[in-house]
Design a protein around this nucleic acid. Sequence first.
DNA 1: CCTTAACTCCGTATGCCTTACGGAAATTGC
DNA 2: GCAATTTCCGTAAGGCATACGGAGTTAAGG
Lengths: 248, 248
Amino acid sequence: MENREPDRTLELLWRRTLGTPQGTRGPKKRVSVDEVIRAGVAVADEEGLPAFSMRKVADRLGLKLMSVYTYVPGRSELIGLMVDEVIGEHAHPPLDGDLRERLTTVAFHMWDEYHRHPWLLQVESSRPWIGPHSSERYEWQLAAIEGAGLTDLEMDQVVAMLGAYTAGSAQVSVTARRTAEQSGISDADWWAVNAPVLERVMPPGAYPLSGRVGTAAGQEYNAVGDPDRTFRFGLERLLDGVEALLAR
Amino acid sequence: MENREPDRTLELLWRRTLGTPQGTRGPKKRVSVDEVIRAGVAVADEEGLPAFSMRKVADRLGLKLMSVYTYVPGRSELIGLMVDEVIGEHAHPPLDGDLRERLTTVAFHMWDEYHRHPWLLQVESSRPWIGPHSSERYEWQLAAIEGAGLTDLEMDQVVAMLGAYTAGSAQVSVTARRTAEQSGISDADWWAVNAPVLERVMPPGAYPLSGRVGTAAGQEYNAVGDPDRTFRFGLERLLDGVEALLAR
DNA sequence: CCTTAACTCCGTATGCCTTACGGAAATTGC
DNA sequence: GCAATTTCCGTAAGGCATACGGAGTTAAGG
């Protein structure tokens, strides 16, 4: 939450471009910063951010708890490093085709990323760290929309809109997936338990539209929802809106 | 995280419509479930969800820690009750005007709600509780779009899109506000500290578009960003997209 | 070669957190 | 007046981040 030792953390973030001038005294390091970060990513991938702890990172590295603090200033800084790490994990795909295709590429790249690393959605950095990969991400997003005839301000706003929509949609999708996996209770089971109580509790006819639409959606999806399909639908509408802006 | 005692929690959620048949033996309750929930909301409003603890709720009520557990099953269930509470806090505004105005009303209602209770964005309910106010919310959202000529499925998808975009945008806005308030470090201060390091660290000319667009946006906003304005911009695009769907 | 500075590793302690368990005391139904 | 029920809460177990300081390791500098 706090931003402790900003200089040191920035140096860690940019350790690749910055030639890290190391004092070489003292015992050899048993691991590297990269290994610490990768171990952190592994823990977060497997257990999510709430269960992510410095002890688990240490265990995975064969270190004792407090040794981890010689590599990174603390938990929240390590998470910041993990974020930039996974943003750089997959190269940004080339931006081909027209504007619509390019923005679709951008949106799905982030969509997939959120599904590979759902804990990204749980990170609440008070002040997000500026790392090499997050910088490159923004540049790439702008490149997708450069030359379409928008002002610089509009370009920034379109990128923000796409990011907000994708994150909000991924939140729903990822939560649904996590629930299905970890609780071991399927949608059907859950409804079987809750429906009797809800029928007893809901005033009959109180929610007519919800009943009609919920039934239609449920039949079409064969489930309570279909986050992927819903994301695609909204993305098409959103891109229609961007094209309307260009046609003005 | 877990959904303990689903029946009991559902009964608590629907306590208003359900006449709670109470056994009256034993010592008098010193507070009510509503007071517990309101105390929880107050704590979360002031300190955010990570700092939200059962002990602070107890202190605020003049109870000792463990007594709170006689009112609600546990922390996560209390948070579920708090969510439905704040959704019902302000009546849903009437839906006047054309489709565009009605959807704008819906979006801004949720936008304001997220700013009143930023912790809503930090809630990660594995399986969201179905309460009276969240049920009414969905019904109201559907009413905003009913009669526009969309299929039931499309209605559900438009509501989902609006919710995802609003939540994603509010996440940015609320994070920016929290950072400014709690860290005591302004945008300007933060840049003053970080700019030297970043200049040393970023390959010059590596991010040409980011530089150009970031400068333009910074001058226009007089800040790093203007979440409110960005939200409005994206909302207009999104609504253009919905109207394009209707005109098909 | 030897001193010493710098560095890693980590034990310990502090102070948070949730929640299981069980006891004491209060209140009412019978 | 007795028993069933319920509230309040003390205690303890098991988790967490991290401040602090000590022990031992390595290389630089004299």
